[in-house]
Design a protein around this nucleic acid. Sequence first.
DNA 1: CGTCCGCTTGACTCAGATCAAACTTGGTGG
DNA 2: CCACCAAGTTTGATCTGAGTCAAGCGGACG
Lengths: 199, 199
Amino acid sequence: MVAKFLAALEQACPTRIVAFETGQPVFRQGQAVRWLFVVVDGRVRLSRILSGGTEIALARVGNNEILAEASVFSARYHCDAIAEKPSSLRRFSMRDVLALLDRHTGMATSYGAYLAGRLMDLRATVEIRGIRRADDRLLAWLQFRAVGNPPIFDGEGSWPNVARQIGLTGESLYRALASLEREARIKRNGRKVILPERS
Amino acid sequence: MVAKFLAALEQACPTRIVAFETGQPVFRQGQAVRWLFVVVDGRVRLSRILSGGTEIALARVGNNEILAEASVFSARYHCDAIAEKPSSLRRFSMRDVLALLDRHTGMATSYGAYLAGRLMDLRATVEIRGIRRADDRLLAWLQFRAVGNPPIFDGEGSWPNVARQIGLTGESLYRALASLEREARIKRNGRKVILPERS
DNA sequence: CGTCCGCTTGACTCAGATCAAACTTGGTGG
DNA sequence: CCACCAAGTTTGATCTGAGTCAAGCGGACG
């Protein structure tokens, strides 16, 4: 449904790809919202300065994700967005986006469904990250992401990337993987992971 | 904006309060979506059975929160909802809700804004929970939640409740609290916490 | 009056982080 | 085609800090 919404957006609105260097700000907290960005390639960090001056990351946005979904409903950006690597972003005029949402009830619903989906996903992530033991956490993540029967997890980028997502260091992740395999709770086949059959 | 949306909903749709005992299911995965629930009192756990049979909690929904926001966009519930304590839920017919969203663009936007807000909040939670040291994590949380100048955090229920939210045990939380106070990074005044002035 | 819960502190344990070292893979440029 | 570099993968040794168990205090509420 992400895809659906974005596809419709691309069809309906004129669009441009904009490039950002590492460290370059895409927008700043407090600026008026003029654009909606979608990450085509690279990674952008959303962050906010807390009282006390420490900066806290709110999110890291990767390929094909919308930057600051909430900005659609807001007049000003509520956080900073800074490219963490060289990134290309697709840029839509917020005026166009709003017009589209307003005109097409289906579009609004589509965007709502997208948001709701992200929310569900993120909530599951929170719960999974709450699991203490590294191997159990990883297994839960794999089970959650796997599809088919037997459930197969088909690599989400590289393992270090998975490690970041579930809040482990690379080393711990590889150890957890090895331990799961040793205990025959998973099988590995190259980049794929095969889980036991569903009952 | 939650309040706004819910208020409008209550005005526009006939509604009933339904009570659930501890352990009683509100709905089950796969059932057709007929109702939208809002927790008036109590707590409801959303969970899903993973391949392998382990149950994973997707979320715990408390007072004045919407149960399974995504159900609005779905024909079937995608998870189980079970009361964790005796709970009262306000129940709206999904038919009414959809009609309202469809008729009033403002309503759809309002709901979208609500979802986007929750998403932002949850993302920040994820990042904060990723901070390893207990005292730093707690401090970040306090700074994030505090308002005013000097920023003041005005107790979110009880401390054990906060502990659950940031993924600490009660004991660790109290220790972190004590350590922050010892190092003069916070001041405590009863249930309130006072942070250093903003620069 | 007793019980539950929030609060607090101490001692000990253990799992994951950290540091370190190798080896593999893939891609880039000479 | 090969040298080289970056990033991924793997394993070992050690450290650290949060979890766990335990014990005690006080207030709220039946």
